[in-house]
Design a protein around this nucleic acid. Structure first.
Lengths: 112, 112
DNA sequence: TTCTTATGCATAATAATCTTAGGTATTATT
DNA sequence: AATAATACCTAAGATTATTATGCATAAGAA
């Protein structure tokens, strides 16, 4: 992920959420999807993405399936049952984080 | 800071914003203010806070003034001119981060 | 009066997460 | 023929935080 240090910690949430919508995706596809959804605002670096995917797999949140398309490898990832639960948790955490930050940064607004 | 890895990277923004509102504050005061504003949701740890304050000072964004109150030291921090500019930048970054995450996590909502 | 909690500062070891910079290989475009 | 796009990967270093300490004074509870 590039552009801002604020994004630190949210990569996992992004991955899980995208997989929750798209059933299965491969790494490169995720980078392109994020770029498209954010109008180029957020670019996930491969040095962050692949280790994150491997970690989620090791934690049992993702399953992998390797496919060969046009003579090139693709590693498709999809959520496990635990992965779906964790997606819910992460999304709740994010919503909570956002409201907490708004309480700090714009206390008047958060009273409305 | 405790509770969530999502907060990583936002401590500097929080410090700058609070100083922008309160003119001058000391470290312990910041931890209490954050706790109060977030209803105990966010607890800034001293191991994160003090190094962050020292770094901001080293970068010329904060000025320090040591005072003795009740025979105890307090180091009051306040924004420099550059600190005020950086506060604006950080708040813009945060607003941008939040809208980006909402575009990713709730694409339908962000179209409204 | 002693013990604990609160106030107030600080640093060091460790962990987590990301950037930067490489590497390999195939396919498509210029 | 060279470059860009597709597709995977890892390692060194930076940044930021947690956890665990340490020191010291003041206030409150046992």
């Amino acid at each position: 992920m590039s552009n801002s240090k604020l994004y630190k910690g949210s990569l996992t949430t992004i991955i899980l959420k995208l997989l929750n919508e798209s059933d299965k995706m491969y790494g490169y596809e995720i980078t392109q999807k994020v770029k498209a959804l954010t109008n180029g605002e957020l670019k996930i670096t491969e040095g962050a993405l692949y280790p994150a995917l491997h970690k989620l797999e090791a934690e049992g949140l993702l399953d992998v399936e390797v496919k060969k398309v046009d003579n090139r490898l693709r590693k498709y990832y999809k959520l496990t049952e635990n992965g779906e639960k964790e997606t819910t948790n992460k999304l709740n955490e994010l919503a909570n984080y956002i409201s907490t930050m708004q309480a700090l940064v714009n206390p008047k607004l958060s009273l409305e």
